[in-house]
């Protein structure tokens, strides 16, 4: 019979899974367990002995100013991501019109996304340079000398300077995702609404925006993941400074391990990062779960 051989239980299937699951076990599953176990110990990274300290690292962590700042900064990155989504959506609606040159515009706006984050960070560092940078030069050029700032050295300003870099680098991604979703919406729906007398804004507000719901949700989830895991742009531009104003959880892990050899405490911070991320994603799924319309 056709299909009988296909549906037979195949123990050989595990051979197909072996390479993938070996990699997974050694470099993903084992590290998670290792990290959790290490977070209850003191270890300097080289000695043979791990010293049990119980929950000490976690207690210390909740009193630490840099950890509070990391969480605050994660929320700022997320706000930046929401702004990013809004700009991307408006641009996508614009580029969904038959405008000559729109493919070129899309390509250009997408470029920052394919360039390495480290190159983006270095470029923006030179833009923000208080003396040589073009940003202050432009502000002084139009007579707004008072607005010229030390963008990365001012503790209040630095985090927003970095948020802007994130928006610039990620906009192209959000744009193409929104554009692809818009193109999957039947144009005749919008035409029908227009014929029925709806204005352009009403079509957007009551038709297009709700129809993009799943896309909003995916982008919000990616935004949460990105905000909690932020590392390279602040690490390169400010090293998390000034005075921890731009630090992130990943920067704190890195510093504790590679600058202070506090492997146990670093592990505790990274366990905390994973817990926060999983909780936020579950929370998002719960709050924005599929609403039934009866």
């Amino acid at each position: 019979m056709l299909g009988r051989r296909r549906n037979k239980v195949k123990w050989g299937a595990y051979l197909f899974l072996l390479p993938a699951f070996t990699l997974f076990a050694v470099f993903v599953a084992y590290p998670i367990g290792f990290n959790g176990y290490l977070s209850f110990h003191n270890w300097n990274g080289v000695s043979d002995t791990w010293q049990w300290v119980g929950l000490e690292h976690f207690e210390r962590m909740f009193g630490e100013r840099t950890i509070r700042l990391s969480l605050r900064n994660a929320s700022f990155f997320f706000i930046g991501h929401l702004v990013n989504m809004a700009i991307a959506l408006l641009l996508a609606v614009l580029l969904n019109n038959p405008i000559p040159g729109r493919n070129l515009a899309r390509t250009l706006i997408f470029i920052p996304f394919v360039v390495a984050g480290s190159i983006v960070a270095v470029t923006w560092q030179t833009i923000y340079d208080p003396n040589l940078g073009p940003l202050n030069a432009i502000l002084r050029g139009v007579g707004l000398d008072s607005l010229a700032q030390n963008w990365l050295a001012d503790p209040k300003l630095a985090i927003w300077s970095i948020v802007v870099v994130g928006i610039w680098a990620g906009l192209g991604f959000n744009l193409v995702v929104y554009l692809a979703s818009l193109q999957s919406i039947d144009q005749s729906l919008r035409d029908a609404a227009r014929v029925d007398g709806a204005g352009r804004l009403q079509v957007f507000r009551f038709l297009t925006f709700p129809l993009l719901r799943n896309t909003h949700l995916v982008l919000i989830m990616l935004g949460i993941i990105g905000a909690v895991q932020g590392f390279e742009v602040p690490f390169i531009m400010t090293g998390g400074g000034p005075y921890g104003a731009t630090t992130t959880l990943a920067i704190e892990v890195y510093k504790n391990v590679f600058n202070f050899s506090e492997f146990g405490y670093g592990a505790a911070v990274s366990v905390f990062t994973m817990v926060i991320l999983v909780m936020l994603i579950l929370l998002q799924r719960f709050l924005l779960r599929e609403q039934r319309i009866d």
């Binding site: 470099f27 993903v28 599953a29 290792f34 990290n35 895991q229 391990v257």
Partner: peptide, 21 residues
Amino acid sequence: LTLLVTLLVPFTTMIIPLFVL
């Protein structure tokens, strides 16, 4: 399902164990 769950593991968690490993 095991594979799906790991999509949620952040890079941050991997810094120390990967270095040691």
